[in-house]
Amino acid sequence: MVAGSNHLAGVLFTPLLWTVATVYESRPSWIPTIHRWLRTPVAQFRLDPHRKTWTLYRADRAGRWFVLEEIPPSPDVSELLNRLHLGPSGIFFR
Score class of each variant (00 low, 15 high):
residue 62 A to P: 00
residue 85 H to V: 13
residue 44 Q to V: 03
residue 32 P to G: 09
residue 81 L to N: 09
residue 63 G to D: 02
residue 67 V to R: 15
residue 74 S to K: 00
residue 45 F to A: 08
residue 18 W to I: 05
residue 6 N to G: 13
residue 86 L to W: 11
residue 77 V to S: 08
residue 42 V to S: 02
residue 60 D to H: 04
residue 22 T to G: 03
residue 86 L to Y: 10
residue 94 R to A: 13
residue 83 R to Y: 09
residue 24 Y to P: 06
residue 15 P to H: 06
residue 2 V to W: 05
residue 77 V to I: 04
residue 50 H to G: 08
residue 75 P to I: 00
residue 48 D to M: 00
residue 24 Y to G: 06
residue 87 G to N: 15
residue 66 F to V: 07
residue 84 L to V: 07
residue 72 P to I: 01
residue 23 V to G: 05
residue 16 L to H: 14
residue 37 W to S: 14
residue 26 S to C: 08
residue 68 L to R: 11
residue 40 T to E: 12
residue 35 H to P: 07
residue 17 L to W: 06
residue 34 I to Y: 10
residue 12 L to W: 10
residue 11 V to I: 14
residue 27 R to P: 05
residue 30 W to I: 10
residue 40 T to M: 07
residue 61 R to V: 07
residue 89 S to D: 11
residue 92 F to S: 09
residue 67 V to Y: 03
residue 70 E to A: 09
residue 5 S to V: 03
residue 34 I to F: 08
residue 42 V to K: 12
residue 33 T to K: 13
residue 19 T to M: 08
residue 29 S to V: 01
residue 65 W to D: 04
residue 67 V to N: 07
residue 57 Y to K: 04
residue 31 I to S: 12
residue 1 M to E: 15
residue 28 P to Y: 06
residue 31 I to P: 04
residue 81 L to V: 08
residue 81 L to M: 12
residue 40 T to D: 11
residue 55 T to P: 02
residue 29 S to K: 06
residue 11 V to F: 09
residue 92 F to E: 09
residue 41 P to I: 00
residue 82 N to F: 09
residue 75 P to K: 01
residue 10 G to S: 13
residue 64 R to L: 09
residue 10 G to F: 02
residue 4 G to F: 01
residue 69 E to V: 08
residue 25 E to F: 03
residue 57 Y to L: 08
residue 58 R to V: 04
residue 62 A to G: 05
residue 29 S to W: 03
residue 91 I to F: 01
residue 69 E to Y: 04
residue 46 R to W: 00
residue 76 D to M: 01
residue 50 H to Q: 12
residue 90 G to W: 01
residue 86 L to G: 08
residue 30 W to Y: 11
residue 64 R to I: 03
residue 82 N to T: 13
residue 56 L to K: 09
residue 13 F to V: 15
residue 80 L to S: 03
residue 89 S to P: 02
residue 27 R to E: 15
residue 89 S to L: 02
residue 25 E to M: 09
residue 46 R to N: 04
residue 9 A to R: 14
residue 18 W to G: 15
residue 33 T to C: 12
residue 28 P to L: 05
residue 62 A to F: 05
residue 26 S to M: 08
residue 25 E to R: 14
residue 87 G to I: 01
residue 51 R to Y: 01
residue 22 T to L: 05
residue 34 I to S: 05
residue 26 S to Y: 11
residue 2 V to F: 04
residue 64 R to T: 11
residue 84 L to E: 07
residue 2 V to R: 11
residue 88 P to L: 01
residue 57 Y to S: 02
residue 60 D to V: 03
